[in-house]
Design a protein around this nucleic acid. Structure first.
Lengths: 155, 155
DNA sequence: TTGAATTGTGTGTTATAACAGGTATATTTC
DNA sequence: GAAATATACCTGTTATAACACACAATTCAA
């Protein structure tokens, strides 16, 4: 079987563009981090998505947020968030209440239990994050966060 | 119903740590980019995961790679890659062949069709990436890529 | 060489995400 | 005030990913 030696040697192909390298770099890093985060969060019975929802709801305070607003902050589809909130309500992490003014709105609010889980889970996640980032200078971290924000805000 | 005004005003809570901000920042950015990438790739009938597999296999050349090696590069579970490769084989993007020396190995190789799809899809993805990154200086992009690599290599 | 451990892959089940509809409520327009 | 539109959510279906477990081929030890 005559294999092409040139092909075998050329183990890696250079990136066609710097931008694509950056993009794939972000995606790949996120996969690593999400994997690790979920492992850290597993003992608390929540996923990284649910952790984010809890943070969002805690930030919203007593006013709560409706499903659509949560979906926008998560950049997820509304119907999926709908069921995500169902699951979280089932285990008591949040409460849902139909809004009296506009009965289409279903306002979600974090519960005491949700707050507690969030507080318990945060230190482990912070430690994980710190372990990953500690080799970078404070200046690099700042540059990273700024660059990512600019990328999110987009074209 | 007396809601806590303090809670209502405090719409956002500062990040407890810089590291966690960086971590969530990466995850959030990745969500945005994956969403966008998948939309760009949809016309070609592949997901961003499949695009990555094609890149990996093209990089491997004629020698191909077995499922476990692909899984490692994707940071995915082996059993999921198994079925991912099944799906990709079904549409002819790659071929699988049991290795004669070690019949446990199932070596996957990119096909001509896979190569073609990869080449057709790349420009659109590059343009998308460029649009996202173009506001950053070359220096920032370089710093970003380096920082992410350091984070991936980890603690 | 035979039995145990290792390695690479496959299967079954469940949870989640994507997508296409559909329903109920609110708002706008006439 | 009634019809048309928009909004927020829900339901059904499918695809993918996660997890536990099982299987088959190889390797190693004695």
């Amino acid at each position: 079987m005559p294999t092409n030696l040139l092909d075998e040697i050329k183990q890696t192909k250079p990136f066609a563009s710097r931008s694509e390298e950056a993009l794939l770099s972000i995606l790949r890093t996120a996969t690593v981090l999400e994997h690790g985060s979920n492992e850290v969060l597993r003992p608390f019975g929540i996923t990284s998505t649910q952790y984010n929802v809890l943070r969002i709801l805690r930030g919203a305070g007593a006013g709560g947020l409706c499903g659509k607003e949560i979906a926008e902050r998560l950049i997820s589809r509304v119907p999926d968030v709908s069921r995500l909130l169902d699951r979280m309500e089932e285990v008591g992490l949040l409460g849902k209440k139909r809004d009296a003014n506009d009965r289409r709105h279903l306002t979600a609010r974090i519960t005491a239990k949700g707050r507690k889980v969030l507080e318990q889970a945060t230190p482990g996640l912070e430690e994980f994050a710190r372990g990953r980032v500690e080799r970078l200078s404070a200046r690099s971290v700042e540059g990273l966060v700024e660059a990512l924000a600019s990328i999110r805000e987009g074209a």
